[in-house]
């Protein structure tokens, strides 16, 4: 296989709060191959958003990246200057936020916001003059058309509040895609949307990924979304990756007790009448956590030997699990 597009190694991001040092991301490794769609699953506080905010260089004090390498196409993003990072952000890597209404500037028209992105990052545009303005406009119309907004010509002049929630999410994707990034990080792109709209937006992302050949990281709490749209998945819990592998394999035969619990927690019409088996308890507070399995307090299989640092172990082709209860390389 060729070189991975994004390779994060040993990332640790902490927030210094009055109550103590919150280790939101602790030793996370992520690899994104060219053209693949990686699902990142976890509940609130799992560190999934902070991990990718770190990749984007969006961590502000009191937060800081304490350790780790973030290699994008072989270049360590942590070594880049602020200026260089700005160029990478937007042109090579784009991110869409969960809440499109607050992420878009309410005072600027949609057309202006797309144009700004193109101005900053598109090097193929003609230099200066009306030709450039025309080219930018044409590209903006093209982008809105690409994300399926009807009569894009007229809608360029409209403001974000004039669009519905699903449309705004599409516009944010259009802005993110304007510079033809090689990696799109979509942070909960559909959480705020209704199911029928959610299906449209996810299919749009699939479609564009296939057409532009970019890689997508889909951050979500919804295993159903991952099952239908992602090639590989990583499951995060309390700031760590606990399981990683091909989507079908992870969902079909989860190896980590947390993944199993998560899957068992999803209410399904097929399970009517049977009690669901929720994971008891809550996510631990991330302040000054002892070096041991972070799930052990909620884990039905935990024992005294879980009270030590647990490393990720290979348990199958492309599969890794952070649990000592799972037999290594089990089965074919």
């Amino acid at each position: 296989m060729s070189r991975p597009l994004l390779q994060v190694r040993g990332l640790r991001t902490v927030f210094d709060t009055r109550a103590g040092r919150v280790c939101a991301v602790d030793g996370v490794d992520v690899t994104v191959e060219p053209g693949e769609c990686l699902g990142v699953v976890g509940e609130s506080g799992s560190g999934k958003s902070v991990t990718f905010a770190s990749v984007m260089g969006l961590i502000r004090p009191p937060g800081r990246i304490e350790a780790g390498e973030i290699l994008f196409d072989g270049v360590d993003l942590r070594q880049l200057s602020r200026r260089q990072m700005q160029a990478v952000r937007g042109r090579d890597i784009a991110m869409t936020m969960q809440d499109a209404l607050t992420a878009l500037n309410p005072a600027l028209t949609v057309g202006t916001q797309i144009a700004e992105m193109l101005e900053a990052h598109d090097d193929e545009l003609p230099r200066g003059g009306p030709a450039r303005a025309r080219a930018i406009r044409a590209r903006a119309v093209e982008m809105l058309g690409l994300v399926g907004i009807p009569s894009p010509d007229d809608r360029l002049k409209q403001y974000p509040h004039e669009f519905s929630g699903g449309m705004r999410q599409r516009i944010m994707i259009a802005i993110a895609l304007a510079s033809k990034p090689r990696l799109l990080i979509a942070d909960e792109p559909t959480t705020a949307l209704d199911v029928t709209i959610q299906a449209q937006v996810l299919e749009l992302i699939d479609d564009i990924r296939a057409r532009l050949g970019m890689s997508v990281v889909l951050i979500t709490h919804d295993l159903g979304v991952v099952a239908q749209h992602c090639d590989r998945v990583i499951v995060m819990y309390a700031g760590q990756v606990v399981e990683e592998g091909p989507t079908a394999a992870v969902i079909g035969s989860p190896r980590h007790p947390y993944t199993r619990g998560l899957l068992a927690s999803i209410p399904r019409p097929a399970l009517r009448g049977q009690p669901i088996r929720p994971i008891e308890g809550q996510v631990p507070e991330l302040i000054d956590l002892p070096p041991q399995c972070r799930f052990h307090a909620r884990c039905p299989e935990a024992g005294p030997d879980c009270l030590r640092p647990i490393e990720m172990r290979r348990v199958g082709p492309g599969r890794q699990v952070r649990c000592i209860r799972t037999p290594a390389e089990a089965g074919p």
Partner: peptide, 25 residues
């Protein structure tokens, strides 16, 4: 029908039988 087909299910299902509702509420 469209509501049901739009729900992403964890069980692996073929994606093709999904209906796409056009437009917004």
């Amino acid at each position: 029908q469209s509501l049901l087909s739009a729900v992403p299910k964890v069980e692996a299902t073929a994606r093709t039988d999904r209906v796409r509702l056009t437009g917004d509420l």
